[in-house]
């Protein structure tokens, strides 16, 4: 584990140092790339709580990412047009304050995770994968067919939302905001993994029957994990909306769910910094291979195949060796509907 700790520290410092170096060299594009890594890693950290700790293979996490994004987009669009969001017995105004937007994004994504999770977790194994995928797709089609907020065309945020006391229009400042949130989420994820809740969740992944035998109900643990997971990914979505100043139904697309999962796997499942390593590798590949060939997704696919078939620990597994937190070995999950 020592090598993993050194690698994690190096990765954390590297992700912080790179945009500062780019800022000194006056290369704002590189800062944006680092910001994307931080935000996508945050989405991965969210998924990793469900996937790595809970063993819940959710193929619908874009749903939370999209909800966070639309929370930011909708609140900002009402603030920009000075029209209230709701005007009835009481009035809800839009806002461009990031703190409020984040709160709304986290609560909205958490609520959706609560409802979809309560339904999906009634099943397990392959049903769970398909159902989370289907719920994600449901939101995708809903945003396309609901014209109030741009429908298929999406919604623009003309001026980036503001944060009290900071100039968010400055790329480096915005990076540091995202980076701080990522660091807090990593801290939270680390604390969860070591808590009684995290241990019970991990135990439920490894052997559901034994956990039940000692009087813990896995369903509740998983639901709580799924809600936390969805809320963190939702927060990432809100930041992503601010990065691009644009939200569209593609934030809900199943490809994005797949990509978030790819970050987690490329880095290493159930590794604390797995999503950070994975997201950094993904963006690096996109920049390097994308420059060489328009069809770089082929090579991403080949790489992913190789990692899945031959290098199961992902990047961190290669560098730090087998850790104690290894998820899902070559066995199938016990107690699934499929076996």
């Amino acid at each position: 584990m020592r090598r993993e700790a050194i690698f994690n520290t190096a990765l954390w410092l590297g992700l912080l140092a790179y945009p500062v170096w780019a800022w000194l060299g006056d290369e704002p594009y590189q800062i944006t790339l680092a910001t994307r890594v931080a935000i996508l890693a945050l989405a991965g950290v969210g998924l990793n709580i469900a996937l790595g700790l809970g063993g819940l293979v959710s193929l619908g996490h874009a749903m939370f990412f999209g909800i966070g994004g639309y929370a930011a987009g909708i609140l900002a669009s009402h603030a920009q047009s000075y029209t209230p969001l709701y005007d009835g017995a009481f009035t809800i105004e839009g806002t461009q304050n990031m703190l409020v937007i984040w709160l709304v994004a986290v609560v909205a994504a958490g609520l959706v995770a609560l409802v979809t999770g309560a339904l999906s977790l009634r099943t397990s194994g392959v049903y769970f994968i398909m159902i989370t995928l289907a719920f994600g797709q449901m939101f995708y089609y809903f945003t396309i067919s609901w014209p109030a907020y741009g429908g298929e065309d999406g919604l623009s945020i003309y001026v980036r939302n503001w944060f009290p006391g900071l100039n968010t229009l400055d790329p480096l400042t915005f990076f540091l905001i995202c980076f701080s949130i990522l660091s807090l989420a990593l801290l939270l994820s680390w604390r969860i993994a070591g808590s009684a809740f995290g241990l019970a969740l991990n135990a439920a992944r490894q052997n559901e029957d034994r956990v039940r035998a000692v009087g813990i109900e896995p369903y509740r643990l998983r639901l709580v994990a799924f809600v936390i997971s969805g809320a963190i990914t939702g927060l990432a979505g809100a930041l992503y909306a601010d990065l691009n100043r644009f939200v569209s139904p593609t934030m809900f697309s199943w490809q994005l769910s797949g990509e978030i999962m790819v970050f987690v796997i490329l880095g290493g499942v159930a590794r604390l910094f797995g999503p950070v390593a994975g997201a950094a590798l993904f963006i690096l590949l996109e920049e390097v291979l994308g420059g060489v060939s328009d069809y770089w997704h082929i090579w991403l696919g080949v790489l992913l195949l190789i990692v899945v078939l031959f290098a199961r620990g992902g990047l961190i597994g290669l560098i730090a060796g087998q850790g104690t937190g290894q998820a899902t070995g070559q066995r199938k999950r016990a107690g699934g509907a499929d076996d």
């Binding site: 996937l51 293979v57 193929l59 194994g125 392959v126 994968i129 797949g258 999962m261 790819v262 796997i265 499942v269 069809y295 770089w296 997704h297 082929i298 991403l300 696919g301 080949v302 992913l304 195949l305 899945v308 078939l309 199961r312 998820a327 899902t328 070995g329 070559q330 066995r331 199938k332 999950r333 499929d338």
Partner: peptide, 30 residues
């Protein structure tokens, strides 16, 4: 590919077949 996945868990199957989608889609576009 698929033959190597029968004994694996669903997560591996999802990822490997997701990788196949990327390869097939971009290959066809190519």
């Amino acid at each position: 590919v698929i033959r190597r996945l029968y004994a694996r868990d669903h997560l591996d199957q999802v990822l490997a077949t997701f990788a196949l989608i990327l390869i097939f889609s971009e290959g066809t576009r190519w």
